[in-house]
Design a protein around this nucleic acid. Structure first.
Lengths: 208, 208
DNA sequence: CTCCTTTGTGAACATGAATTCACATGATAC
DNA sequence: GTATCATGTGAATTCATGTTCACAAAGGAG
């Protein structure tokens, strides 16, 4: 097959990436040692040169995923100083990720890994927590800057933000692309923005 | 084991229920013929007296789930004529379902079934569609009655409503009950309600 | 060039889960 | 009460997948 031999560091990355793709494309069932190996152009047993077993491979895939998603959030921080614009940008990036990868919904939103390795569940949870923290930070800064309503709980708002995308992502891949994620995101954002932004006109109604 | 023999109709229901529970408790991995059989107090091969195979069993479980969830929505319609109150009630029922079953997130929100039988994916999609339609109907009625903002797209709003619960459900079972779903639902609802309710005070700002 | 380590290969092995089948046993009609 | 059919059982079969192992080949060090 592939005549070349590569260093184990390179291979580990390749394999982790392939595993993530496999997971994205076919769900947990497609995350088999054989399938991943074939993606990289290797034979199943070769995987064991670079990983202790399937579990370690899965963990590596989740780790790679975290890198990508956090990079996503980090980049947004540099785009704009305004919290609302940042959130909108995150949302748009999500939409793009959904249309490219489909990995996001499968990894973060799904329970795919729950039945997998013991640590996977905690890792996924860790990813989500990190991500939510990132969102919550943006929100807090927005509140400090006076653009986001101060009476909102940042954590709750972050989870709600996640809720703007999650169902859309599920629908997208359940309909195999038939659901218009972009349109949904645009409309939902419009409503959500109104809900969390400080009113520009001269009003100050209470939260409830 | 179980000395009694039951009619196949009764058994089918029992098995479907057990399958749903198994799915709820342990995810797709736990949805094995053997595990389900054990739950009912049968031996694996006995399942084949009532179902053609695992796929048909899975489909039955999804069907049973649809019954339950739609019953949930139907009941709310009788509780109150007001759209907002109905939505709040649906939300509360969801919270309760999450804490009892955990079946909901696993079935509706997850891709668990994607790798399963060919038809399962479409069935799950059908369930979600039905559910969203039910929500959208409530929203439309609210708009007609003048309690929900008319400029909102009912479908988008229904999906957003789903987004109030979905991430919370995932977090709930990822943290094994550590995430406070009730509190999140209460807070998120407060914000969401403000976003979709017609302002009672004398204002009429545009949607965007 | 030669040696030695690392990486890749194919076959073999283990395991778990779905499915089938011959047989047993409960329920039911006559 | 007996015959019959539906339901339940346990063993056997098949299949997919994770994993191990002995061997081959690439690539660098000397």
């Amino acid at each position: 097959m592939s005549l070349e031999k590569l260093g184990t560091e390179v291979r580990r990355r390749q394999i982790a990436a392939a595993a993530l793709e496999a997971l994205a494309a076919g769900g947990p069932k497609a995350l088999s040692v054989g399938a991943v190996a074939r993606r990289v152009g290797l034979v199943p047993s070769a995987i064991y040169r670079h990983f202790r077993g399937k579990d370690e491979m899965t963990v590596a895939a989740i780790g790679l995923f975290r890198e990508r998603i956090m990079e996503n959030i980090r980049a947004v921080r540099e785009e704009s100083p305004d919290a609302l614009e940042r959130l909108e940008s995150v949302l748009n990036r999500h939409v793009r990720m959904i249309r490219d990868n489909i990995a996001m919904p499968r990894v973060v939103f799904s329970d795919s890994l729950a039945g997998g390795p013991a640590g996977a569940k905690k890792l996924v949870l860790g990813n989500i927590r990190l991500y939510l923290d990132g969102l919550a930070d943006i929100i807090k800064e927005g509140q400090a800057a006076g653009t986001i309503r101060p009476e909102l709980a940042p954590e709750t708002t972050a989870v709600m933000f996640l809720g703007l995308i999650m169902p859309a992502a599920i629908l997208w891949h359940l309909t195999e692309g038939g659901f218009d994620v972009t349109r949904h995101a645009a409309r939902a954002w419009s409503t959500f923005r109104n809900a969390i932004a400080v009113n520009t006109s001269s009003q100050k109604r209470g939260g409830r």
